[in-house]
């Protein structure tokens, strides 16, 4: 097996937002390292408030990181703007969670899919129309002719998400960040969309970052999985490895919570509110909820460490 080609690498990535003035910050992405290889699918799993969406949006450079680096092949794209950013967007696209919100209600299917074809690929006229038609065909929206002049509200949820996927493909990207692409859809059509994404990944040798709160669908879709909690990456491993041998207590909790799992974890503390994202927090962010918490956990900074070739974790217990 040849060495996989590295496409995108986040190095000590930090994203923060001011809250309520007075110099207070929250840090939804806190010192994250992540590598995406060619034709690989990386799942990012976490609960709401874990910072996974913020991470996704930063990888696509909708958001600008406060610190750290973002390597696209050999370029640092963390702070690019203008033309360079536009160029980057041609290569790194996104599929949003809510296809209702991500499609412009005032524009037709054709308009929305044609936009990146025109702006990124510089096609117009018949070439553009052909390209849009083949894209719609590719995402299973055929015959395209019936759909191209329709508005989003005339489509079903599944059709809308297919249009959004077609739009992401239109720029001919190398990476697609899919932010919970099925969570807003009816259960009955989720499988179809996941199936479509899998096919695209294989046909086009695309890399995927698949953001989800659901470990089961991450395992179905991804080769490697990262688990996020309170803005930090707490565990990273291959999908098989993380299922067989979850190391972080939070991962175990997620495993126990997913249906059909034989895994039994100690019951976690759930009386706490949402995870603390403030810049002033100390110690392991999971400590307040952790069933295995030690005194040290509340004080010491916990480093992410690679234990095996493909398996890393940020937990003091793992050092014992």
């Amino acid at each position: 097996m040849s060495e996989p080609i590295e496409v995108l690498r986040a190095e000590n990535l930090v994203v923060r937002f001011p809250v309520g003035g007075r110099g207070r910050w929250i840090v939804p992405v806190d010192n994250i390292n992540l590598t995406i290889h060619q034709a690989e699918s990386v799942g990012i799993v976490g609960e709401s408030g874990s910072g996974k969406t913020t991470l996704g949006r930063t990888l696509v450079r909708i958001l600008e990181p406060a610190k750290g680096r973002l390597h696209w092949h050999t370029h640092d794209v963390a702070h690019i703007r203008g033309r360079a950013l536009r160029h980057y967007h041609a290569a790194v696209q996104m599929v949003f969670q809510d296809p209702f919100a991500s499609l412009n209600p005032a524009r037709t299917v054709f308009d929305q899919v044609a936009l990146p074809v025109r702006c990124h690929r510089r096609m117009s006229g018949a070439a553009q129309a052909d390209r849009v038609e083949s894209l719609l065909d590719q995402v299973g929206l055929s015959p395209a002719r019936d759909l191209r002049e329709k508005y989003p509200h005339e489509l079903s949820g599944g059709q809308r998400q297919r249009v959004a996927i077609a739009r992401a493909l239109a720029a001919d990207p190398q990476i697609i960040v899919a932010d919970e692409p099925v969570s807003m859809l009816d259960v009955s059509i989720r499988a179809g969309i996941l199936q479509l994404l899998t096919e695209l990944k294989e046909q086009l040798a695309l890399s995927f970052v698949f953001i989800t709160h659901d470990l089961a669908s991450a395992r179905y879709f991804s080769t490697r999985i990262g688990v996020m909690y309170a803005g930090q990456l707490v565990e990273m491993a291959t999908a098989a490895d993380i299922t067989r041998r979850p190391l972080h207590p939070y991962t175990r909790l997620l495993m126990a919570a997913s249906p059909g799992s034989g895994m039994k974890a100690p019951l976690p503390e759930t009386t706490q509110g949402s995870p603390d994202l403030s810049a002033q927090r100390r110690g392991c962010p999971f400590a307040p909820r952790c069933p295995l918490v030690m005194d040290r956990c509340r004080q010491a900074t916990v480093e992410f460490r690679w234990l095996a070739d493909q398996h890393g974790v940020a937990c003091l217990r793992s050092e014992e």
């Binding site: 996104m94 990146p116 702006c119």
Partner: peptide, 22 residues
């Protein structure tokens, strides 16, 4: 800050397109 405006930016649309068409 709506997703469809973000999507138009990702689509490489120029500012005047986003303002007047989206």
């Amino acid at each position: 800050s709506r997703d469809y405006v973000v999507a138009a930016r990702l689509a490489g649309a120029p500012d005047q397109h986003i303002i007047f068409r989206e």
